[in-house]
Design a protein around this nucleic acid. Sequence first.
RNA 1: GGCUCGUUGGAGAAGCGGCUUAACUCACCGCCCUUUCAAGGCGGCAUUCACGGGUUCGAAUCCCGUACGAGUCACCA
Length: 487
Amino acid sequence: MEGVFPVTVRLRFAPSPTGHLHIGGARTALFNYLFTKKHGGTYILRIEDTDLTRNKENAEQGFMNGFRWQGLAWDEGVEVGGEYGPYTCMERLDVYQEYINKVVESGAAYPCYCTEAELEAEREAAIANNEVYKYSGKCRHLTADERAALDAEGRKKTIRLQVKPDRVYKWDDMIRDTIEFESNGIGDFVIVKSDGIPTYNFAVTVDDALMKITHVVRGEEHISNTPRQLMVYEAFGWEPPLFAHLPLILNETGKKLSKRDESIIQFIEQYEELGYLPEAVNNFLALLGWSPAGEQEIFTMDELIEQFSFDRVSKSGAIFDTNKLNWMNGQYIKAADLDRIVDLAIPHLQKAGYIGADFDRAWVAELVSLYKDGMLYVAEIAALSEMFFTEEVAYDEEAKAVLAEESAPAVLAAFRDKIAELEEYTADTIKGALKDVQKETGFKGAKLFMPTRVAATGQTHGRDLNVTLYLLGRDKVIARLNNIIEA
RNA sequence: GGCUCGUUGGAGAAGCGGCUUAACUCACCGCCCUUUCAAGGCGGCAUUCACGGGUUCGAAUCCCGUACGAGUCACCA
């Protein structure tokens, strides 16, 4: 099924511009991209904007920003153009019209004048009779005269595709093998809405066919749309593409992620803001539903492209685990250049009010460097480094307990005196001072370090103490020690 | 409810009839290293693959049924 393709592989991701790019969409786009690049094909970005009521002003731009951040460059489509454009539905209305005419003239589709109220009544009657609702098809038999009369009345109409009875529509899904539906379970469905705009099922099929899409890769929620789209392909005598239906991404309760689900962070934009690295997000997303042949976990984009295949995509939904994403992001941060992380950290420090427009970059770099190896995402830098920027240190119960230990008074006083005399105040000389304090007081290990750390930072956990004290600055450290000693 | 898909540990998952006494990763729990704190290293964590039948010398792997879960049933995509 996979392997070498005789013609150029062409895949598309076709979101509807109704909101922000969320992780489900980002993963679908990623999988489309990986497969396309693996086979040297063309990756296309198309916008499915047929629902005027739900379209959002800046959504399209937001999607593009998200994809650019992810590094999923499209070869053809909105903004970049291509020979099969235009690439948004609303610019393709005349294209659709031609095919609508064809299918109406051939009798494969017909106008339907049923009102919403009538359809609602049909639906309720079916439910009352304990039947499965399916459009009755009553407008199918209208004569030309009757249609003309209804048109003359100014009645609104939709166009429905006539579903052939007793047929089986099936396809060989690249992920799920054969899936089949009986046509008898499907009523004549609307392909053109009363506002004259085609529905998704029609537009997407016409676009895919005309744009010579070879593989359609999308979420599992589209499985039940597929037989309808197959009917459209059939109505025009087009060869359908290959389909792959990806497993859903689930929240921790095992339900499909809804866009208003607040249990996990949903939007790519938010990950960018929090200081997740795109490579980490892509890597994590790739592992949600797909698994490599070996034991490797961390992959560059090129490695993902090389190793990706649909026969290693699982069929069951995957629960989104923020823990693992955080771990992975931490791995990437650790491996990243310090400068890059510093650039990402600066806005967070500024936003917290810790540094202004002018700041000492070398100092900030040392600060970031202190925390870089332990950060899960860059936004953490603000909370992690808070104690560098506050005047008052808050001591919690745990901290107070450390300061109440017997070694604390002697250690703190000795250390204060030692660093006050230091000619140079650096991480190294601080280390030496601590050693001297140890000799003088006889306290070592936790008895020595913990009171010092807690008095100076208020925290019982933290990074390298010598560097922390150095970055804090001598004056601040002495002041904080004095506060404790005098209290 | 109909249709469709799925079910291996807390999470992602490997496994494709014997090489599995079920990989690997995250989380969790220990230990080691570090005079503190992290990072790191090491080890533990499913006698069992939703359940019940069957096929087979042999099944997590094939078949059937049941249960459970999910998706979808729009003039939304």
